[in-house]
Design a protein around this nucleic acid. Structure first.
Length: 591
RNA sequence: GCGCCCAUAGCUCAGCUGGAUAGAGCAACGGUUUUCUAAACCGUCGGUCAGGGGUUCGAAUCCCUUUGGGCGUACCA
């Protein structure tokens, strides 16, 4: 039983014995004691005052005395303005360090027997990945790691959007203007090559629209009748009909894209257990529609289209199948949800998708619930905000995007420059240097994107967004390297548990207190699907360690103090490494 | 029009189920290296938590409302 739990139980008991009232556990509020006061854990007495019918000060005094006599861990207490601050014995904290924090499995929860799918990335195969996708990928990967560490079995899935009119646009443009260009002949990465033709399509298409408009056609009409869009639509029909030439072209160009994506994924350090392709799943969902009709959840309009009425849930009527029997987005998402569940029988399923689809997922989950799918309540949309540039929103077709590959390369390059300027690479091998620059550059980028709450929009200024000082990835990586350096100077390997330490300095105590919070932070991050909680926690830990490092000597301390501080340092490094690992960020031993 | 989300220091962000004088980082200014990595540490400056009501012993946090921004409201995905 945790100390917090003991305090809560005893407080309830104290209220019962002292005031003859029954207080429920939830109304005992504990919080961390503010730094300026003595103590580590604080009981807020205000909720108890109505039972004690005494002033907060007297109530605190009485509860405090009761707790101190009945809990050996509490060695002192003080009351300030109705806040009962409890001082926990140093012995308790030392025991925490020795018997919990130093364990290899600290912060790793045992299996909870539940399976969760995290679907993320879900790219279109007509253009390379950009900064927005990077946020998506890092979020998805990190959430998967966090859920795994908190006891889930995790399946990472990627639903690739590999078909549709937008794919045909790239294919058509390549066919018309490509002159047989290939990744090999052009030296372009496959996804970039295909993306180039997506832009070409748009340019040529606009040209045709302008021509038509200048001939007196309205803009709307021109958009619909321009030869290029007609050809693209024809191509889509041919694709759906299984025309061999079209399929061959599609396979060839998608193959280029996948090769490119694989490289980008590898660079970002993300991976997947299962790929789904929309070219397989887009026909799904019709059975579900029939099921819904049979159950009376859906209804048919006179034209034959199928709808669901969600007005009683304060939403709209929503189309789920066209009059001609073809699918809409919702149709295939219904089918895909069933497919995924049939494949894995997971208890929960997380969709990492941008917040412009909030409404879609709300409706999707609601429909599945109305269809009586027991697993529908385990579905969750992890919605995240767009990444903005100083110039505004990113738009692929207009070329105002921050390309993922370029961004990563630039980050690594900046890391190289910074590191060399600091003159820290003497004696490092060429291989290690490359590895280090990659770690730091990527660490900076990942931390920058993950430290912000997912649902918030994010402003990315290429000129100044990514720093290497303060609340950044490199700061935390540096702290880790520093600790490893001290440990290696002391030839420290394993933690002795029998040093004679009995009292702690304030900074040592603070460090153990914050270290012991790691498991609950991990749990909260898993519940909220929020890597940001981990990021902010690790930063606090690193910051506190740096202060400790600066103020209290380690190697020059007396032997038993030295051993203790080494152990404290090793524990800090281990938590930093684990925490950063949950964010997909590696930490170097030297930098 | 309707629905959802956001608004905290000059900038980028924390702030747990309401709790003590609202916290970091960056930027600016000033200090700290013959001592374990100065990508660090310490200090100064900086806020009517968008505005207004309400609930409460107590509100950045909950409710209502106004304003500003974003997204959605497609037989696109």
């Amino acid at each position: 039983m945790t100390l917090e739990k003991k305090i809560i139980d005893l407080t309830v008991k104290a209220v019962n014995e002292l005031y003859g009232a029954s207080l429920d556990q939830a109304s005992v509020t504990l919080q961390e004691t503010r730094k300026e006061f003595e103590g580590q854990i604080t009981v807020v007495t205000f909720p108890i005052v109505r039972f004690s019918k005494k002033s907060p000060e007297i109530t605190g005094q009485e509860i405090g005395e009761y707790l101190q006599t009945n809990l050996e861990e509490i060695v002192a207490f003080n009351i300030i303005k109705g806040f009962l601050n409890l001082t926990i014995s140093d012995e308790f904290w030392i025991t925490q360090l020795n018997h919990s924090i130093c364990k290899a499995d600290f912060g790793k929860f045992p299996s909870n027997g539940r399976k969760v799918m995290v679907e993320y990335s879900s790219p279109n195969t007509n253009k390379p990945l950009h900064l927005g996708h990077v946020r998506n990928n890092l979020l998805g990967f990190s959430v998967a790691e966090i859920l795994h560490a908190s006891g889930y079995e995790v399946v990472k899935a990627n639903l690739v959007n590999d078909r549709g009119i937008h794919i045909c646009k790239s294919m058509l443009a390549w066919q018309l203007f490509g002159n047989g260009e290939t990744p090999e002949s052009s030296g372009l990465k496959g996804d970039h090559l295909v993306g180039k033709y997506y832009v070409v399509f748009d340019k040529e298409y606009k040209k045709q629209i302008n021509d038509l408009v200048s001939q007196g056609v309205t803009e709307d009409e021109a958009k619909k009748t321009a030869p290029l869009i007609r050809q693209a639509q024809d191509m889509l029909l041919k694709w759906e009909a299984g025309d061999p030439d079209t399929i061959e072209l599609w396979k060839k160009m998608n193959g280029w894209v996948y090769t490119g994506f694989d490289e980008t994924y590898r660079k970002m350090g993300v991976d997947f257990d299962k790929y789904y392709y929309e070219s397989d799943t887009y026909i799904l969902g019709k059975d579900t529609i029939q099921e819904g009709l049979d159950k009376g959840v859906f209804f048919k309009k006179p034209d034959g289209s199928v709808w669901i009425d969600l007005t009683s849930d304060r939403l709209d009527e929503k189309l789920v199948l066209r009059a001609d029997g073809t699918s809409v987005y919702m149709t295939q998402d219904l089918g895909t949800a069933e497919l995924k569940h049939d494949d894995f029988q997971m208890d929960e399923s997380i969709y990492v998708v941008g917040n412009e689809q909030d409404y879609h997922f709300k409706v999707l989950f609601l429909i599945l619930d109305k269809l009586g799918k027991s697993w529908a309540k385990g579905l969750h949309h992890l919605s995240y905000g767009m990444v903005d540039l100083p110039s505004g929103k990113m738009k692929s077709r207009e070329g105002t995007v921050v390309d993922a590959d370029e961004l990563i390369d630039e980050m690594v390059e900046t890391a190289r420059q910074r590191t060399e300027e600091l003159g820290k690479v003497e004696g490092f091998s060429a291989e290690y240097k490359e590895e280090l620059y990659r770690m730091i550059g990527l660490g900076a980028l990942k931390y920058f994107l993950l430290k912000v709450e997912p649902k918030k929009r994010l402003l990315f200024d290429p000129q100044e967004s990514i720093d290497f000082q303060g609340n950044t990835g490199p700061f935390i990586q540096y702290t880790h390297a520093r600790i490893i350096s001290v440990l290696s100077k002391a030839s420290y390997s394993t933690a002795p548990t029998n040093e004679q330490r009995v009292s702690l300095t304030p900074l040592e105590r603070e460090l153990i207190v914050i270290q012991s919070k790691y498991p609950e932070i991990l749990k909260a991050a898993a519940e909220d699907y929020s890597p940001a909680l981990i990021a902010n926690y690790v930063f606090e830990l690193a910051k506190l360690y740096n202060k400790f490092y600066h103020e209290e000597p380690i190697l020059k301390a007396e032997e038993d103090v030295k051993q203790f501080r080494l152990k404290l340092s090793a524990a800090t490094a281990a938590i930093i490494k684990k925490g950063m690992g949950l964010l997909g960020i590696e930490v170097p031993d030297r930098m």
